[in-house]
Amino acid sequence: MKKLFHEFLKGIIKENPTFVLALGLCPTLAVSISLMNGLGMGVAATFVLICSNIIIAMIKNTIPEKIRIPCYIVVIATFVTITELIMKAYSPALNRALGIYVPLIVVNCIVLGRAEAYASKNSVMNSLFDGIGMGVGFTLALLLISGIREFLGAGKLFGYTLIKGFEPAFVLAMPPGALLVIGLLLGFFNILKERK
């Protein structure tokens, strides 16, 4: 049990997909405009990650080495499509806000990266906890980035205005703001790593 907990924990800090592995930065840059978008994207990616990790760990011995990548992609794409259908049915507003980035979870390198580097070599249980840990790590990173951007770029958190009279810096809600915030946070996490 302790080992499983360790698998879960490593995705959050030590091997955080965004700040340490620097994987899946494209959706991170694009959707981190508001906390709601960040949360939606994080949950969707986590769902796909957990499901694909489990399935791939289950079928890892039956698929031949040479065609493993197409197999992984089919599995991942299936879960992404399921996510998109469910989102369209029960949360159309979020689906519209995330737009093309929901189907693009297929090519999010966190998902394929974990399938290839972890789930194809480890047991189902371990893969499940790896998926949860990575997903939560990704979600937390998205929440941190989108929280900073929504607060400074629009003066709001989860759509609610916090301080009256605060004049938000539009640039943070625009693409350069995403690069700026992620760059500074990456630098900050590198400092933390060096201190250890």
């Binding site: 004049e167 938000p168 810096a169 539009f170 640039v171 943070l172 625009m174 350069p176």
Partner: peptide
């Protein structure tokens, strides 16, 4: 440039 993009 930052000011121009933020508070035009």
């Amino acid at each position: 440039a930052f000011l121009m993009a933020s508070w035009p």
